[in-house]
Amino acid sequence: MNKINTDVNYRTMAGNARLVIIAESSHNPASYKYEAIRALKQLKAAGFTHFAMEMLPLKIKEKIEFYQRTGKGFDAIKQHFKKEWNWNSATSTGYAELVKAANTLGMKIIPLDMPIEMMDEIDSSCDWDKAETGSCSDSHIKRNEMWADILQNSLKLNKTTRIVAFMHRWHAFKAGDYHLGLDQLMLNMQIHNIRLIDYIGGITCSDTNICKGQSDEDKSLKETYFYRKGAFKVSPVLSFTVHIPQRRISPAGTLTW
């Protein structure tokens, strides 16, 4: 295991990358969203210009652009998270606050995903197991390919563009023989200046028995905020792990540590 560093510095992790992928190991912990806000503040100061997000579908692109252009219409975005991403109330609120933070920082927001209805239609004829035979592409594969196209086009459109992309771990990393992660797909598109940051810990992991690959740290590190080089899943790009202490989110939406 690589040595831990308690000075969690996102500018150091990002280096000269044009694309930083932040992966949450579970959608549940609100702490991942608030940690991502911390990351955005540091990365904006380091020159990152855009924020891309799995949880925002292309079908609400106009609403996002209206919000960014006028400062109005944020409630429509909040309602989207409450309807489609309400794993718990703190989770949907955290996603909304992440969008608000990116807007406040002056970052261009990029929606990545397809509508859920389209995912269901694709998966009705090609499920995960069938896709793993290589005979068809399920929604996971098609979504990752779509996101890679969007990110590549955004990066090529302007050489000064630098993107922070936020998504679940199993979109960032390889999830199966035919379910390639964004890390490999971007390399296949000749986008090489990439860093991948995997979030683990948080309130989702209070017991090592249920935290394999999320927070299976030594007990002495459970309450420690740190990062280290490398991740539990091997990636073809330079990767880091950020460990979130197992603290709860206060009613005000801030970490209690």
Rank of each mutant, 00 (worst) to 15 (best):
L185P: 00
Q79E: 08
I116P: 03
Q214P: 00
N103Y: 07
G230N: 09
S215I: 03
N88S: 15
D75V: 09
I116K: 12
R18Y: 09
K41C: 00
K44W: 05
V164F: 03
R11T: 12
M119P: 02
A14V: 10
T241Y: 00
R248C: 13
H27L: 07
G106Q: 08
R18T: 12
K142Q: 14
M167R: 01
I64F: 06
W85P: 07
F51S: 05
G71I: 07
S215M: 10
Q184T: 10
A172Y: 01
A175P: 03
A46P: 03
S250F: 06
K108T: 15
C205M: 07
T133R: 15
S124W: 07
A175M: 15
S239Y: 03
L155F: 08
G201L: 05
N144T: 15
E35T: 11
A52G: 04
T161S: 10
L182E: 01
Q152F: 02
M55R: 08
I194E: 01
Q184G: 02
I197E: 01
P115S: 00
F240Y: 15
A76R: 14
K156E: 12
I60M: 15
N16Y: 05
L151E: 04
I141W: 03
D129P: 03
I60V: 13
F48A: 02
N188C: 09
K156V: 08
I200K: 04
I116A: 13
Q184K: 07
N188A: 09
S206G: 11
S250C: 11
G253E: 03
E62K: 14
H27Y: 11
N28W: 03
S139R: 04
S154A: 15
